[in-house]
């Protein structure tokens, strides 16, 4: 469960996210959308504990990110848009390192299954420099899933993946949610959100414009029209301009 109350992030005089509140329950997938510079990545990074909030409260699986960051972080996984890997650690060594950091315990079987699922088994002993961008992204996903997180944050999860990888990623997100994970994902690919998300939150200039289930948000901006897609909803909600 992710509980966010009045989350605010300021960079000097500029407010990137302003008093944002929402809740993602187990089994829900929240799609975070908004124009460029709307504050999506700042929101995700604050919720993952990567950057400090200026004010507000975030609770991850019941633990306050501010008061008990270790417990909160033990329950979450953050998947950044750009895969960040340690240059000198092989795929297998990455998993060994992450297992130790998260105190996973015997991890070898789970790691092997993840590598097979993500088609990285034959790359287990190579360094990230020899992996394509898509494979690096898969390794980041394997590392993030190794400690079976209850909360997941995805920032543009499909970037760099091939069509098969995209299909598998969507299935994986839906499956993890059905297994009880709370998931927030940020993406500009609205068709992904329509396929995967149960809820959507639209941000503009750091302020929440709308949130709710896809149907609720669509109903709010459809003006009584039938069959209005998320793309049209997004354009109407954000006024068709950049942040």
């Amino acid at each position: 469960m992710i509980e966010v109350e009045a989350l605010t992030k300021r960079y000097g005089a500029f407010t990137a996210v302003s008093a944002l509140s929402f809740c993602v329950r187990p089994g829900e997938v929240l799609g975070l959308v908004g124009p460029n510079g709307a504050g999506k990545t700042s929101t995700l990074r604050c919720m993952a504990g990567v950057i400090p909030m200026s004010s507000g409260e975030v609770r991850i699986a019941g633990a306050s990110l501010d008061a008990d960051p270790v417990a909160a972080k033990r329950a979450l996984a953050f998947f950044p848009d750009e895969p960040r890997l340690f240059e000198y650690l092989t795929v297998r060594q990455h998993l060994a390192f992450v297992a130790r950091i998260y105190g996973v315990g015997p991890y070898e079987d789970l790691a092997r299954r993840l590598l097979e699922e993500l088609e990285l088994a034959d790359k287990a002993d190579v360094l990230p420099g020899e992996l394509s961008r898509g494979m690096k992204q898969k390794l980041v996903i394997a590392c993030g899933l190794l400690h079976s997180p209850k909360v997941m944050f995805f920032d543009e999860p499909l970037t760099g993946l091939d069509p098969l990888g995209i299909r598998r990623m969507k299935d994986s997100i839906i499956r993890r949610a059905s297994e009880g994970a709370s998931i927030v994902l940020s993406s500009h690919l609205l068709h992904l959100l329509e396929e995967v998300c149960t809820h959507v939150l639209i941000l503009k200039k750091g302020v929440k414009v709308a949130d709710g289930t896809l149907e609720e948000v669509a109903a709010r901006f459809s003006n009584g029209e039938a069959g209005v897609g998320l793309e049209e909803v997004f354009i109407r909600a954000t006024g068709g301009t950049e942040a």
């Binding site: 240059e87 650690l89 297992a99």
Partner: peptide
């Protein structure tokens, strides 16, 4: 181009996280 190397010592899956960071940085 860097080459894959074995870890400087075996890294057990349980234990102090500081040792995991030492292991990683020694490898690097």
């Amino acid at each position: 181009r860097p080459k894959p190397l074995p870890g400087p010592f075996p890294l057990e899956p349980a234990g102090l996280p500081e040792i995991a960071l030492l292991w990683k940085n020694l490898l690097s």
